[in-house]
Every structure is written in C-alpha cells, then in structure tokens.
C-alpha cells in the first residue's frame, strides 16, 4: 500500500470526524455569541440526540428519518428548558458560577440518562446498508458519507438562517451589540432562548448521525471536549471559524495518529487548543481581540 493511498485515507477520516467536530463547535459558538457563556453541556446534547433517536426508533417504532427529526426537536426543547430554568436566573452571575452551572447541567443530563436508559450502549441501524464507497484507493463507510452530507446540509441551513431570516439577522445583531439591539426593538431574551434551542438541535444532529455507532450516558463528554477545542481553534464566537476549526482539528488529529503515533491522539487536540489560546486567542482565522488583559 502506497504512502499516498494511506495519506488519502487519513485525510478522509479526518474530514468525516471534522464534520462532527464542526457541528459541535458551532453549537458552542452560537451560545457563546448570544450569552458569552461556554456551554459545557454541549457534548451532552450530542448524547441526548443519539439516545432520543434510539428510543424513538426502537421503542416507538418510528422510521429512521422521523425519529431523527423528532429527536432533534426534543433536544432543542431540552436546550430551551435549560436556558429558561438555569441560565436565565444566572445571567448576571459571575463567570465561575455560569461555568459551574453548565457543568452541573452536563452532569445532570448524564445522570438522568443513566437513570432512565441504563448504562448500556443504545444503537440504531446504519442509515443505509451495503458495501462501503471507494474514493481512489481510500475506503469509507456509507455512514461517514451520511455524517458529512448531513453536517454540510446543517451548516448550509444555519448559514441561510443567519443571512436570510429576520430572526437570524436579529441574532447576529444581538451578538454584536445587545443594548443597541434592544433599542431597535429586538427581544434579546427570545434570541437567547432561540440560540440555546438552535445549539442543542445542532448537537442532536451530530448525535443522530453518530447513533449507529452506539452511545450511552457518558459518551457525550469526549465529543463535547473535541468540539470545544475546535470552537477555540476557529476563534470563539465565529460560525465560519467553528466550521473551519472543526475540519482542521479532525484532519490534524488523524494525520497525527496515522503519521506519528496513535498514543497521543487525544492530547494532540488539547495541545493545539492551548497553543491557540496562548498565541492567538482570537482563533486561527480572524484578527479580533480575545478577552485578555
């Protein structure tokens, strides 16, 4: 097997993982833009998406696309509830208490799922069966195609939402300047709620496409952390940055595992995170000042 062929396989794996990371990173970004809060429960939205979908499919016997759709809606509702019950009362709290509250929420989600669904992995079938696809010499499973396609579609829809709809524009306005938005009659609180719903829905989409690989109550943690690294790498508070960050992180990770060593695969993401934070806290893409002294 030639080196170039191997390289191609690593790249393809990196891009599919990157799609997932990008979705989760977008979730972080949307909430950060509207509330200046890092939502440490973002990974749990992914897990909830997979768990809800598996329940709807296996217990309620709905079809795959229907259970996928409903699970996304349900997780969005969870996100909105989280905002109303927990984040809203803390809107004037200290940064530390905001961080601890979202961490508390993530632990609570994990605990509830463990209580209700137990400790075993939950599965749904792969979205389509059949032989994996070939791209030159690289091979990739059908599910990875689904992951990539659905991730790209979600990003496209999100982009359209921000650019074309009134609500989307209002959200952009809010993140740019809350006071000014209020003055022009935008209901900032509605926008915050919307952003939580949107962010949770994106997490659930990621969870849905990952559901065939099996998820259980604590599976969200790793995804949350990776998406979080991606969001920072791309520059927090920037949608395009989050997407680029996701793909960059995915590809670098797989290249590192393939070419150097798979031992330090996880540490690699965090080294990148730290390097970016210390050298370019505004992210790799744009020139914007991060919150530093």
């Amino acid at each position: 097997m030639k080196f170039a062929d191997q390289l191609l396989q690593y790249l393809i794996n990196g891009i599919t993982n990157g799609g997932i990371y990008a979705l989760i990173a977008l979730g972080f970004t949307i909430i950060y833009k509207s509330t200046d809060i890092i939502n440490f429960a973002q990974g749990e939205f992914v897990m909830l998406g997979a768990v809800f979908m598996s329940t709807l499919y296996n217990r309620a016997h709905l079809s795959l696309p229907v259970s996928f759709g409903f699970s996304v809606l349900a997780v969005a509702a969870v996100g909105i509830l989280m905002e109303v019950l927990m984040i809203h009362p803390l809107r004037d709290g200290s940064v530390i208490s905001q961080i601890m509250a979202t961490i508390g929420a993530s632990i609570f989600f994990r605990g509830s799922v463990m209580l209700i669904w137990g400790r075993n992995d939950l599965f749904v079938p792969f979205f389509s069966c059949g032989q994996p696809y070939r791209f030159f010499s690289a091979i990739f499973d059908r599910q990875y195609v689904w992951i990539l396609v659905i991730a790209l579609i979600s990003m496209g829809v999100l982009h359209l939402f921000y650019e074309k709809t009134t609500h989307g524009k209002a959200m952009t306005a809010c993140s740019a300047n809350k006071k000014a938005s209020m003055l022009v009659g935008i209901n900032v609180q509605t926008m915050v709620i919307l952003s939580f719903g949107l962010s949770a829905a994106l997490g659930a989409v990621a969870g849905g496409v990952l559901a065939p690989f099996g998820m259980k109550y604590d599976s969200g943690v790793t995804f949350g952390l990776k998406g979080f690294c991606a969001a920072i790498v791309g520059g927090l508070g920037n949608n395009v940055g989050a997407m680029v960050g996701g793909f960059v992180l995915g590809v670098v990770e797989e290249l590192g595992a393939g070419l150097i060593s798979s031992n330090y695969k996880n540490a690699l993401s965090f080294c990148i995170l730290l390097a970016v934070l210390l050298i370019r806290p505004q992210g790799i893409l744009f020139i914007r000042s991060g919150e530093r002294v």
Partner: peptide, 9 residues
C-alpha cells in the same frame, strides 16, 4: 467512531 486510520497504517 472510526479506527480505519490505525487499520490503514
């Protein structure tokens, strides 16, 4: 979710 990188190696 994907161990094909290691397997490709």
């Amino acid at each position: 979710t994907n161990m094909t990188t290691q397997l490709t190696k």
